[in-house]
Design a protein around this nucleic acid. Sequence first.
DNA 1: GATAATGTTCGATC
DNA 2: AGATCGAACATTAT
Length: 277
Amino acid sequence: MPELPEVETMRAALEKAAAGALLRRVEVRDGKIVLGRSDEFARRLRGKHFVAFGRHGKVLQLKLDNGDILLAHPRMTGKFLLVPPRHKLPDYARVIFYLDRELRLVFADLRRFGRLELVSPEGLPEAQLLRQLGPDALDIESRQLYEGLQKRRVALKVALMDQKLLAGLGNIYAAEILHRCGWHPCVPAHELTLPHTRQLTKQIHAVLHEAIQTGGTTIADYLSPEGHAGGFREHLRVYGRAGEKCLRRGCPGFIQRMVLGGRSTFYCPLCQKQFAP
DNA sequence: GATAATGTTCGATC
DNA sequence: AGATCGAACATTAT
């Protein structure tokens, strides 16, 4: 489920609630979630403190006081939840981190696609969860994005979701960004000029910042670690709105759904035709 | 019961 | 070699 804004919302919430927390015990209920040996994973974490909370693309980076880094990728349905004392554990609790202060941090994941990986500082560059990622979508500059787009023949929306090009965008935000640009999702990526790419970069940053401000997007089951739904759902202009009226001021169009790269794609056939900066 | 779901990865093919 | 496509992964909600 989560894309960059949802992972950033998780990061900020964990930083607030668990900075400096001690990991008393780690219980791996589902070994599939953890890369490598579960017993080793639990043993290496026990007794460490969380000291910093980072993120790259959709990957959360929880840093420990011995330099090791716990990487977490939620994939489709993974999430961290902070469970207060005496509260019942959530459904699909796959890995449980028992902290001091009577706090429990749970990695819950219905579909079991999520992954946790513990790496040493030296191992960080080759970490499976980070290895293939391009620059973070919040940091990428137009020039770099332009050069990456030039090399690709695929539809622009497919390129935006390619984590090697830039890390963090998924199906929701790629669609929303293209609608704000007024471009059709099928535009071949390499047709963008540098000025087009400047406009695109600006919208990528604007949409992501707006989504972070509102706590991300909840479609089916995303919740922040404190259990809050995301507010960006009210800001969606195309995603999940097939058959509904286009929300661009003055546009009489209706949102259409098509399949691109195997994923549902939503766009307005009337106002996503233009292709000029 | 069929369909779709906020994502990545692998193997086959171009 | 590198890009691209479709299937696979696992499980539920509608």
